[in-house]
Structure formats: C-alpha cells, structure tokens
Amino acid sequence: MSHLPLAAESLVAGYERGARVLDGATLTVPAGRRLALLGANGSGKTTLLRCLSGALEPTRGRVTLDGAELRHTRAGLRAHRQEVQLVLQDPDDQLFSASVAQDVSFGPMNLGLTEDEVRARVAEALDLLAVTHLAGRPTHQLSYGERKRVAIAGAVAMRPCVLLLDEPTAGLDPTAVGEALAALHRLQQADSTVVMSTHDVDLALRWADEVAVVVDGGVVQGAPDVVLGDDALLARARLDRPWALTVGARLQTLGLLPDGALPRDADALVAALPDRPGVRT
C-alpha cells in the first residue's frame, strides 16, 4: 500500500425525481490525509463514493487514480478495486458469510492469492480493526457496531491505498465511534488514505484534515474551519454549523481565545481558554 491521489472531475451521475444527483462534481482526495465528505441525506454523498470506487459509471466526467483514468472494463475495474475500496453504510449489504473469518477472506481469495497469503491478510485486517476476538463468532450474533467493523475489515483485507467509508459512525454510540476512529487512525498509519462520509459536522471538524461538502450536485472542498464556518454554504447544504466554530468565534472576539485556528473540540477549547478572564497567558 502507498498513498495514491484519487480524483473525480466534473462528474454527472445518478438521476432521482427528475434531477441529476451529481452535476459537475469535482473532488480531489488528498493522498495520505483524512477527508470528510459532508452532505445532507440524499445530497449525493453515496453516489459520489460509488463513482469513486467504480461501482457506478458516471454519465459524464472521469475518475482518476494517480492521474490514470478509470475505465469501466473488466480489467480496468479489477485494477481499480485493488486500490480503492468502498465500505457501504449497512454492514448487512456486504457480509454474506456466517463466519467472520470466512467473510473477510472473500476479497483476498478473489485476488487469487495463495492460502497462506489470504490467511495473513485476514489476520492483519482483523487486527487493524481490533476484531480478532470475533473471528470465531457467527456474523448473525454480532452487534451492529461489530458488524460495521468486520465489514471494514473485509475491505481492508484487499489492502487498498484508498478506503472510502459511507457513514462509518452512523448509528454507533460515542464509545463505538471512538473505537471506529481509532481503527481509521491505524489504517492511515498503515498507509491507507481514508475518506469518510458523514452528516455530523462536529465529528468532521474534529477528525478531518480536509472537508468536502456535497451540495446542489457539486462539491465544495477546503479546510474544515473555513468550509464549515461558511454559513451560506451550510444553509444550502442543509447542514448545521459546528458548535465549536460558533462558540469559538464568539470567544475569540471577546479576546478569550488566541487568534488563528479555532479549537476543534470541547477539550481543546477548554485548554485554550485563559486561567483568568481577560488575561491570556
């Protein structure tokens, strides 16, 4: 695995209720950095991810990996899928085997690896997702959060250089979200570029190096505090402004926070506050 830049150029794709879902969407996935893809339900996040992964062929526009255009031929898709893996929101859409270990082995088996290599890949993927203890458990006895992580392990076992995750934290409680984020961190360390879609603006601000908002068929991409501080854009995108930017900006005007980038979560904000009001230390 190594970081390769993935990009979408002027994509037109999908058609719902008489309108194009994506209509000129351009996105660059910065190699090796964390990208959060934001958008309301139905905005086209999933359509964009499916185009990037090769699951959906756009009507117009192109997807490139390391500059080379993705061709929707058998060989083209085969090559693309080895590098780019998409994990769907509902884990039951990807888990077809009753045995966790067997399910994770599916992708590597399709790559035509030897049994030993497959076994090593499965062990590695289970370890990265911290689900090795689930290997012997049946899929149907796992909790929702556990199934989500096993589904991610199934994609990770392909050793993609870009991992696309559709709403990996949706439906998880705070502790499970923390565990999922820790797993994503390990994946990034293992040289996978991670893209996560979400509509949780607070999470995106906290986690991402860069955010992309899907709105009106297009994409607006940039630094988290800039993009998520743009009220006009957020209103169009039917998203909220992260509380940390609202509160932080006010505290900054009061002179209670230093100039420059605002803290991204509660702990950072509290740490950045002065010991006494009006006096910055």
Binding site: Q94, F96, S99, F106, M109
Partner: peptide
C-alpha cells in the same frame, strides 16, 4: 432487496465467479 444490495456490495470486493472463501 437484500440479494440485490449484497450483489452490489460483493461486486466491489471483486466477486467474479462464485463466493469463494477460505474455509477454516
């Protein structure tokens, strides 16, 4: 619906012929 969605999900994992897995 499940079968259709599963097919989509597995295509992304390289399903070409059959559901080959590594037996325990």
């Amino acid at each position: 619906d499940r079968a259709r969605r599963l097919q989509d999900g597995l295509a992304g994992r390289g399903m070409e012929a059959g559901l080959r897995v590594l037996p325990e």
